[in-house]
């Protein structure tokens, strides 16, 4: 009890009572300490860097997913868009070996935006429920990936060296992937909190009728949100293919669930209207830790899935309890 009151005082002193991720930070630290005790290698710089590198793609996509969920929607097609853009870029670099690697990023963004725009059009103008529309588009994009590639892979030796090295270089001493993620987060932070359109997204999510009466163009906002989600998935597709140096038709199967889990862990309400950037970041990091740490503490792969579920469940419960205690 005493500890909790100290925690509460700290909390009030810092005047961050609106910071809802406190429970999540607490849990991440706790988990890190436990894993660190089991395997000292976990808390080395090298391992943390590896872990961050594996988390960046998830973190980038979770940001877009947050915007979609804030507008009361959901996008199940993200993993398929990732696979499609990755496959197209893979085929592109296979054919045009001389193309500079930076071009591929723009190609990925363009493909992703196009896919996202179609999904957004169906949701915004077609008034189809997001879960149905994106479930359908998930299959469409995955199918297109199969059609275009003919079911074959683009392997590491078919890709030019410059493309593979893209995600292995560093900019200003920061790894390329982490640099891109930071860039995306800064841009989106500014967009979400300091621009009119960004705020309108939240308005549409928390009360569509009121937003409509205030003169916000709901269709435009929905279209925008799904297009952004698509472009981030497209970007993630390029990074994925470059990092793992292979483009397959079944790339990232089931990733949409991890992305949604990262969002919901980060406190994004599935009923729309609320969600913070730092929450999504923390949620992604937690998922990254779980994926990275379980093999490190030598857990049999058959136990991995069950333990992942238990950890997520404990995390949300602890978060809920701490928040309740702190707010009282």
């Amino acid at each position: 009890m005493e500890k909790i009151s100290i925690l509460r005082n700290m909390y009030l002193n810092l005047k961050i009572s609106k910071f809802k991720g406190i429970g999540l930070v607490f849990f991440i630290l706790l988990l890190s300490i436990i894993i660190g005790l089991r395997n000292p290698n976990y808390l080395t710089v090298g391992n943390i860097r590896d872990m961050l590198l594996d988390t960046t793609i998830l973190a980038i996509m979770a940001l877009g997913m947050m915007l979609v969920i804030v507008t009361r929607g959901i996008d199940l097609s993200v993993a398929s868009v990732l696979a499609l853009s990755g496959m197209l870029v893979g085929l592109f670099v296979e054919k045009y070996q001389w193309a500079p690697a930076s071009v591929t990023i723009f190609i990925g963004l363009a493909i992703g935006s196009f896919c996202g725009a179609i999904t957004g059009f169906i949701v915004a103008k077609g008034k189809v429920m997001p879960i149905i529309a994106t479930l359908g588009m998930m299959n469409v994009y995955r199918g297109l990936t199969f059609v275009i590639s003919g079911g074959r892979w683009v392997n590491a030796h078919q890709m030019p060296e410059s493309f593979k090295q893209m995600t292995r270089t560093s900019i200003f001493g920061i790894d390329f992937l982490i640099f891109i993620a930071i860039l995306v987060y800064i841009v989106f932070y500014y967009f979400i909190y300091y621009t009119r359109t960004g705020r309108q997204i939240y308005a549409v999510g928390s009360n569509p009728e009121a937003a409509h009466i205030t003169g916000i163009n709901i269709d435009y906002i929905l279209q925008l949100v799904y297009t952004l989600m698509g472009s981030l998935s497209g970007l993630a597709g390029v990074l994925w293919v470059s990092r793992y140096a292979s483009a397959q038709s079944d790339t990232a199967m089931g990733l949409e669930m991890s992305v949604i889990a990262a969002c919901v862990l980060g406190g994004v309400k599935i009923t729309g209207g609320s969600g913070e950037v730092y929450g999504v970041l923390l949620g992604s990091i937690l998922i990254g830790i779980i994926n990275n740490a379980l093999p490190l503490v030598r857990i049999s792969p058959f136990w991995k899935l069950a333990l992942q579920g238990v950890i997520i469940l404990v995390a949300v419960i602890i978060n809920a309890i701490i928040q309740k205690k702190v707010e009282r």
Binding site: K304, L305, Q308, G309, V316
Partner: peptide
């Protein structure tokens, strides 16, 4: 989370 747990 129970989805992972049960299949796990």
């Amino acid at each position: 989370s129970t989805m992972s747990i049960y299949r796990g």
